[in-house]
Design a protein around this nucleic acid. Sequence first.
DNA 1: GTTTTAAGTGAACATTCGTTCAGTTAAGGT
DNA 2: ACCTTAACTGAACGAATGTTCACTTAAAAC
Lengths: 195, 195
Amino acid sequence: MARTTGSHSDITGPRVRTAALKLFARHGFAAVSMRQIAGEVGVQAGALYNYTPDKQTLLFDLMKTHMRELIEALATEVGEGSALQQLEAFTRFHIRFHRERPEEVFIAYMELRNLSEENFAVIEQQRRSYETALEEILHTGQHAGVFELHDTKVTAMAIIATLTGVNTWFREGGRLSFEEVEQIYWDMIRKSVAA
Amino acid sequence: MARTTGSHSDITGPRVRTAALKLFARHGFAAVSMRQIAGEVGVQAGALYNYTPDKQTLLFDLMKTHMRELIEALATEVGEGSALQQLEAFTRFHIRFHRERPEEVFIAYMELRNLSEENFAVIEQQRRSYETALEEILHTGQHAGVFELHDTKVTAMAIIATLTGVNTWFREGGRLSFEEVEQIYWDMIRKSVAA
DNA sequence: GTTTTAAGTGAACATTCGTTCAGTTAAGGT
DNA sequence: ACCTTAACTGAACGAATGTTCACTTAAAAC
């Protein structure tokens, strides 16, 4: 057998990425074989190479796309307003965006060491750009006297770690609604940098 | 050749664990082979099986030991005092302990999914016990009116995520000393739960 | 209806994997 | 000096790895 009925590149391509995303997130990049991904798609392993030059690039593309979408979404959702308003917008945006993409987030944090040197540099720069956006909000608020903090860089790292942590424990249908959790985190962040 | 000069079980045993720790932390459990570990120790792969029944158990033992030491150290270092004092002690303890064991910490957070079901349950329980210790501090302070927070469980998770995040960016000899970083984090935590 | 080509198969490639085990050697006990 | 045994080797096991490729087939173009 070869080309099966109704198969198309523009269907299989996304399916390959979706399958890789799911499996990488669940078992880790190194523990997932190309045959497993192919099986998830319903295709033989060789067919995957119509959609990616190799396994490494498949991982890199997933991470790069995720980071690009993260940065773009941040730019559109957090723009105007005072430093305090911007920090609130950043906080709520980060939690929501990460909540909507648990698999991408997990991979972006866990699989950095499985990137080649060049690919790592690209992702690292994207990450820096995201962190810088938060740093600038903190810097503005600090100079305006509305925030009181020792160091914008450290504070930015602390805030991002705090917010990303939501993904490790929050499950839909639990004791608290997502809106409640978002509010709790914003209250903590707000107080932690308050003047 | 076989048994080499001066070799002993009580020397090789720890060396196997140290090598596995280093390599698992650097490349991930799934990406490290028993032959790599053996090479790091200076021994053939087969010799490892004098010290572990299999690769999975090697990982499990590393994680279990780390978690046990974490919980024991917490108990001895955070005991007396007011809720605020205990929270400060917890904060400083967590940062320091994690800073001293970056490899163990990294593995304990990254390799949970590579544990078998039973082994995972054990580690998960240890982790819960550590989280509960913080929850109780928060609960005490909340009832005493010295802390103001919405939910002890969520707050505990947020604090732990914040503190553990230090390990992802702090490097000795950087812009800030470790003592400064510790102080910055404690100030943030203190303010975030302040009444 | 014929031709072209995109999409996928299935077998094969050389490596590597975790693990086992019979055999070998040095250290420790007597 | 001899014996026992702990410690390790080195080869072997079947299974799995990422990737390539000659081949096949269904869909699209004309």
